[in-house]
């Protein structure tokens, strides 16, 4: 009897989640239905032609290009971001830590056309550094795969710093000392304790960085246009009809491809994350 009010409260507690569920249904559910509907429709009839076309020729190249670019940025960004975060965490200079964290907070949100402009003005063909250091004479170009990777790293590394600093702060000094006391070298501490403890966070960071690069559009559009094949640029082209008219539903199929890629990444990530975090359960 005493539990009755509690059960009643519990039975209604899901109501608090209604606004969130409605929001999710609106911004994820509705687009998904539209994508699925459009993807499997051509000329008013049900068809898989859009899907087939989306994984062929230039579209496939763009899809693979996006995956390669995102994977590269995710891995390199995670490694460099982790090293930078570790340097900051172990620094004796409190001001340096604050400065790096503040800068990371700003830079991780730096994107779109402003980011592209900043890089074009700095390291583009007529950029300040390009001309002043004579990079142009040495064949330097920002407008290719590696240039785009560099620009994406510019916001990905700070994002990784923000993700991994709390985890590094959580590594207790006693663990390192206990490892030393048991005869472990610095490398052995990281191998047996430090990296395994950080792995769930690192994996999460890699996925976050992958997702950020995979979905990026405006920076690439402003910087490289169609010079670097990326799936987001292909979707934009197909939707706007700038290149081919009547390919809107191929754009939807490409969007579905992106969802599948994201799903595959999660399919790899989740078991790894579960395995690496089994000691937390």
């Amino acid at each position: 009897m005493a539990n009755a009010p509690l059960s009643k409260n519990r039975s209604k507690s899901w109501l608090a989640a209604v606004p969130l569920l409605a929001f999710v249904a609106l911004v994820f559910g509705v687009p998904l239905v539209v994508i699925l509907g459009g993807t499997f429709t051509r000329g008013g009839a049900v068809s898989t032609a859009n899907v087939t076309e989306s994984v062929q020729g230039a579209y496939l190249t763009a899809l693979l290009g996006s995956v390669k670019l995102s994977a590269l940025v995710a891995v390199v960004g995670a490694v460099l971001g982790t090293f930078l975060a570790q340097a900051v965490v172990t620094s004796r200079f409190r001001a340096l830590r604050e400065a790096v964290l503040t800068a990371s907070g700003v830079l991780s949100n730096f994107g779109g056309v402003p980011l592209a402009f900043a890089w074009i003005a700095t390291l583009g063909n007529s950029g300040v550094i390009t001309t002043s250091l004579g990079f142009d004479a040495r064949g330097w170009s920002l407008y290719n795969f590696w240039g785009l990777a560099l620009v994406y790293l510019y916001f990905s590394i700070p994002l990784m710093v923000l993700v991994v600093v709390p985890a590094l702060d959580g590594l207790r000094p006693q663990w390192r000392e206990a490892a030393q006391n048991n005869g472990a070298s610095a490398w052995q501490f990281w191998r047996y304790v430090g990296i395994p403890v950080l792995t769930p966070t690192l994996l999460g960071g890699v996925v976050l960085l992958f997702g950020g690069s995979f979905a990026a559009y405006a920076t690439a559009q402003a910087m490289v246009g169609s010079a670097v094949p990326l799936v987001t640029l292909q979707i934009a082209n197909a939707l706007s009809g700038n290149v081919l008219i009547g390919h809107e539903n191929v754009a939807l199929a490409l969007s579905l491809d992106m969802i599948v890629v994201a799903g595959l990444v999660m399919a790899v990530y989740l078991p790894l994350q579960r395995r690496s975090a089994r000691w937390l359960r």
Binding site: W175, E177, N182, Y192, P196, W279
Partner: peptide, 24 residues
């Protein structure tokens, strides 16, 4: 050495914690 607290490696089970020095 035994520390004040919280010095066991959280990612290793008890057996592996005890045998850490031997593993190294």
């Amino acid at each position: 050495m035994v520390f004040q607290s919280y010095s066991l490696f959280p990612n290793l089970n008890v057996k592996d914690n005890v045998a850490f020095g031997l593993r190294v």
